[in-house]
Simulated scan of single mutants.
Amino acid sequence: MTNVLRSLRVTAIFAVLLGLIYPLVIGLVGNLLFPYQAQGSMEKHNGTIIGSRLIAQSFTSAGYFHARPSAVDYTANGSAGSNLGPTNSALIKEISGNIALVKKQNGAIANASIPADMVETSGSGLDPDISLANARLQIPRVAKATGLSESYLQDLVARETQNRFLGIFGDPHVNVLDLNLVVRNKLDQ
């Protein structure tokens, strides 16, 4: 009986410590030292919150850069990949459909030159970033739809490129929301 009481006390102490005190302290420190990140890295346009830099959104207009396909329809309340294997017929059908959509939206592109992140979902289904190859393939479509020059959009992609973390981790990429905010602001001028 002594061991049962001791384990109940330890459980109660750790429940309070790790379930209440630790999250409150981490939340407080995060909000004091990194308020933008702790509040979800929310981006504004004309004073209105339009999204988070951390969560992909569905941009379907030809005048915007498009994010990766999403396995969860861009709803952040349940992020997940499809978990389908490379030989699964549902995955093959999905990717074939995505390839057809990319070709329809961006003109004739050889399958070999379509970057994987343009037709495959990310592990979370909410990846807010796209590869440079993906962004560059979308430039002609965005230029045609917005009237912005391709050279301006190429410079924009280069300017918004985020390089490898610490110079070695990941690949250079661009945040789709950031690109589209600059495009929107340019069009508003």
Rank of each mutant, 00 (worst) to 15 (best):
Y36F: 15
Y36A: 14
Y36P: 02
Y36W: 14
Q37T: 13
Q37V: 12
A38H: 07
Q39M: 06
Q39L: 09
Q39C: 02
G40L: 02
G40T: 00
G40Y: 02
S41E: 06
S41F: 10
M42C: 00
K44S: 06
H45F: 15
H45E: 12
H45C: 05
N46T: 09
N46E: 15
N46V: 08
G47L: 04
G47M: 05
T48R: 11
I50H: 06
I50W: 09
G51N: 08
R53H: 04
R53P: 02
R53D: 05
R53I: 01
R53S: 09
L54Q: 13
A56E: 09
A56G: 12
Q57A: 06
Q57V: 03
Q57R: 14
Q57C: 04
Q57E: 11
S58A: 14
S58D: 13
F59C: 06
F59H: 09
S61R: 11
G63W: 10
Y64E: 10
Y64W: 07
R68V: 05
P69I: 07
P69G: 07
A71N: 03
D73I: 02
Y74S: 09
Y74H: 07
Y74L: 06
Y74D: 02
T75L: 14
T75G: 11
A76W: 04
A76K: 03
N77G: 13
G78K: 13
G78R: 13
G78Q: 14
G78V: 10
A80S: 15
S82I: 04
S82E: 02
N83S: 11
L84W: 09
L84S: 08
G85P: 06
G85L: 15
N88S: 07
N88K: 01
N88T: 03
S89A: 15
S89L: 13
S89H: 10
S89G: 09
A90F: 10
A90M: 07
A90N: 07
L91Q: 05
L91N: 03
I92L: 14
I92R: 09
I92P: 06
I92C: 09
I95L: 05
S96F: 03
S96V: 05
I99Q: 01
I99T: 08
I99H: 00
I99W: 02
A100N: 00
A100Y: 00
A100D: 00
V102E: 01
K103M: 09
